[in-house]
């Protein structure tokens, strides 16, 4: 009697183990398939950038290079060395860096400040101010090109890196404010009251009490803003040209302006170079990104 029941259970156990194994294999199969699908373009880019034009023409997309050469990376980065008409990324990379660092700092700081005011120093009509700021997130970039161009002209900073810093800082405020407001709203107001009784003023409360507990949301904002500004093409193409252009514009010029043969290897190397900084930022701060997006409440 007992033996027969235990045998029955063993059978059931065996059955469910087989079923689990099958489902698990299926799951991994799907996951690997998708991973391959997503990594495929990157592999093609890297392979192509390492091959000579001859190899590219003769082989398929996935043919491995016979000898690995970094020449095309060098060309993409530093050019061929002949004068006019030689486009390469190095100067524009620095342009972008000079633009992105101040723009990220300004927009993050302004967003933090606005979020702090909108949540901790409430005033009449503050919810309308926030609502209007939110509109900024939904206005398409194209809609503001003309007025912005005019404004930059009036300020005398069109076609300069400074102008782009200005545009990106302003355009970043709606997003950064949204991030910081939603973070600060979860921080108890009593913290601010306590600090006021302790004699801290507007700025002291901000810098001594709120900023030290804002690191998760600062990371989120910095990653977001860095990616947005670094990858921006439209503002760069509209408000700057020639030597003041950011890297995305230069990349475009490089890829589209070749008069003779299309050099896929150089183009691929250039595209990867233009994408590396955002990857670095994400890899360094990525784990905080998810944490910052999901956590809000600071338990004090």
């Amino acid at each position: 009697m007992q033996d027969s029941t235990s045998a029955k259970f063993l059978k059931l156990e065996e059955k469910s183990r087989r079923k689990n194994f099958f489902l698990r294999s299926f799951l991994y199969f799907i996951l690997i398939l998708f991973s391959l699908y997503f990594i495929f373009p990157l592999i093609v880019m890297i392979l192509t950038s390492l091959k000579t034009m001859e190899e590219i023409r003769q082989g398929t997309l996935l043919t491995l290079p016979k000898t690995i050469t970094l020449d095309y990376w060098k060309i993409a980065w530093g050019g061929r060395g002949y004068g006019a008409g030689d486009t390469f990324l190095r100067p524009y990379f620095w342009n972008s860096l000079k633009m992105v660092v101040p723009a990220v700092i300004f927009s993050t700081f302004l967003g933090a400040m606005t979020g702090y005011i909108l949540t901790k120093w409430r005033f009449k009509g503050d919810s309308f101010v926030f609502l209007f700021l939110l509109f900024g997130c939904f206005i398409p970039y194209q809609a503001i090109l003309l007025p912005m161009a005019r404004t930059l002209g009036l300020l005398g900073i069109s076609n300069s890196i400074f102008g782009l810093i200005f545009v990106h800082s302003i355009y970043g405020i709606p997003f950064t404010t949204l991030f910081f407001r939603n973070y600060y709203i979860s921080i108890p107001n009593e913290l601010i009251k306590a600090a006021r009784i302790d004699g801290a003023g507007f700025f002291k409360i901000f810098f001594k009490i709120l900023i030290p507990i804002s690191s998760p949301i600062i990371v989120v904002t910095v990653i977001w803003q860095f990616t947005q500004i670094w990858n921006d093409f439209l503002f760069g193409a509209t408000f700057s040209f020639g030597e003041h252009a950011p890297i995305q514009v230069a990349l475009n010029n490089m890829v589209l302006s070749s008069t003779a043969v299309k050099e896929y290897n150089v183009d691929m190397a250039a595209a990867i170079i233009a994408g590396i900084p955002t990857l670095i930022v994400y890899v360094l701060a990525g784990k905080y990104f998810i944490r910052g997006l999901t956590s809000g409440a600071v338990k004090g």
């Binding site: 306590a194 600090a195 006021r196 507990i213």
Partner: peptide, 29 residues
């Protein structure tokens, strides 16, 4: 201003400054 009223307040959520140690919290004022 609150700080000049010669008062001190204890809050429901305690409102301790999360980034500071107990010592810094006490002497902040």
């Amino acid at each position: 201003e609150p700080k000049d009223r010669n008062i001190a307040m204890v809050f429901q959520s305690y409102a301790l400054y999360p980034s500071m140690t107990v010592r810094e919290n006490i002497i902040f004022g």
